[in-house]
Design a protein around this nucleic acid. Sequence first.
DNA 1: TTTCGTTGGTGAATCGATAAACTTGCGCTT
DNA 2: AAGCGCAAGTTTATCGATTCACCAACGAAA
Lengths: 347, 347
Amino acid sequence: MPSAVAAPPRRTTLTDVAAAAGVSRTAVSYVLSGRTVGIRVPETTRQRILEAAEQVGYRRNALGLALRSGRMDTVGIIAPVSIMIGEPGKPGGVYYKDLTAALAAAAFEAGLNPLLMSETPHHSISLADLSDRRVDGVILVAKTSNESLVRDAAAEGVPCVTISRDIGTWQVATDNRWGARLAAEHLLGLGHRRFAFLTYEEDSYSSHHRGEGFRTALRDAGSPPDSLTTHLYDQPNRLRVALRSQTRPTAIFCFNDEIAVWLLDICREEGIHVPEDMSVVGFDNNILAVTVRPRLTTVQSPLVELARAALSLFQQQLRGEPPPPTPVLIKPQLVVRDSTASRTLSQ
Amino acid sequence: MPSAVAAPPRRTTLTDVAAAAGVSRTAVSYVLSGRTVGIRVPETTRQRILEAAEQVGYRRNALGLALRSGRMDTVGIIAPVSIMIGEPGKPGGVYYKDLTAALAAAAFEAGLNPLLMSETPHHSISLADLSDRRVDGVILVAKTSNESLVRDAAAEGVPCVTISRDIGTWQVATDNRWGARLAAEHLLGLGHRRFAFLTYEEDSYSSHHRGEGFRTALRDAGSPPDSLTTHLYDQPNRLRVALRSQTRPTAIFCFNDEIAVWLLDICREEGIHVPEDMSVVGFDNNILAVTVRPRLTTVQSPLVELARAALSLFQQQLRGEPPPPTPVLIKPQLVVRDSTASRTLSQ
DNA sequence: TTTCGTTGGTGAATCGATAAACTTGCGCTT
DNA sequence: AAGCGCAAGTTTATCGATTCACCAACGAAA
């Protein structure tokens, strides 16, 4: 008696139902899948089959179906998991967790199962992971968009949508220029005239567009070109110098909420009061924006709509429809809270 | 010419490799899967097969394999997605996002693919979703632990691990009593003698254990039973009354960081300074703990270890090994920051 | 010369579900 | 009485990979 573990009962299959109902597997298949063309099954037999299925506790095996149909009804979500579980207190992560959750929810809405995929130290994602038919295709989140992967997928006919990255034919992104413009117009309306843009890296996809959108809005409003300076997150000393200057900015547009939170700390240390002495605008509107004090005025990343659009493109691709002529851009909204105020007269 | 979309190239199969190498599918299967028993293949043929596979760009179809072997190498993660994408500013969510990310990462480490599953308005998860062989089993996250689902899974032989819920035979949880004891001992050591425990609902799994652990630690230290009162998150007015009392607590242990953040706001409004007039301890050590000011002293939820333990139990179950005699408890650590201080003499 | 052992594989069944092609039996017409 | 048409299904091939049970050919031994 080596083991007391009861053997798991074998799962019931179509054959079991067919035997119980006294018909062929084909008849059962047609009835249970609701097909009506190609075969005739009278109501009495139909009922008999349904009852038999119920009685033996039949559940359709998704693999058999998928092997036949070539559809797994599953979408791979390639997200930067290593960033998502980084140290608390380190930047990054919140946005990706929120976006991944939104993508998962959108997948459910679309009737698809979200399978998480991620690079690990031992394994980088390649075409092999996409073409083993475990997933019908993938959605790539910005940081993970490997250019050759997208190219290979297209060549192999694997549906593939990228989010916030200028790669491939099927793209979805936040309308970063629009969001930046909202921020700029809000600050201009409050009377501000000297601005800074604070970001991680100037030339990343999102950062580039946000900076450009802000600058364009200023120009449209007649602000001189030198009314906007750019600063980097990893150069706090330069930022401090700028903040001590006589002609320091009175409003700072941050690449995202995490940077805004970091900026609030620096301002506090420099004795600069937000929003009285300095207005701060973030981007994302995640949990940080309502946790920090003052609460952040911020541009809301439209994650739910972004995710829905991504899934929608994905399904278009599955159906063999042509791609949209340009990337799908989702317009964000401005959420005004307590970190922005009118420029005081002394400045 | 109705469509200009190029037909996706048919994926290559074992048969293609066999044809290219001039051998049978059987031989290819043995060579590519590395089996050595049951067949003899000389080195020259082996090489020929490997080269042929390389040349035709062969990728093993995971579904064919899974259908044969009964193993999908996939673990379902049943997480409360609707909570995860709740409004920013509403409680809940951060913990589940962090835990889900940790579970996904642990799944990768274990060589398994994490498939997210969630209740939706249209569809509640049932045995049917578990026994369709899309996943080899599931890991249930606290809020989603449907009792009957766990029972059904066990009856059907579907591996199933629950996290932080006293259901089923395979359980993993944070050692909440231990964590609460760490908090209590820290506060006692700072000279505090009047305490409160602030939570969502007194009798949930985690809340019950945290409250009990805190109380036990106080008793062990000789504190009288009435030195601890309990308050609920959704009753802010009662809490305010307690905070205005002459014998108000000088230290409050919060069920989690989100509640602690909420408490900090109330204290601010009541003119109570943290940590000078009031010490606050959170639980989780998530991004909120380092974002809010003062930074939170908090008990770190050991999410990475929790997730690894869950995956480990899952794999034991897959291998048919017996369950551990008691739930697996992971001991958390205390992270001391700026929200706790010595009791001042005036109190 | 028959038998035995070994090398180097192959054939066919199987996992579960689907679908095109086909069969059987009956009533009705011509 | 032969033929037609239709109801009510059944038969069989298929998706891709695995694996148990063979088998052919050859050399060596008895």
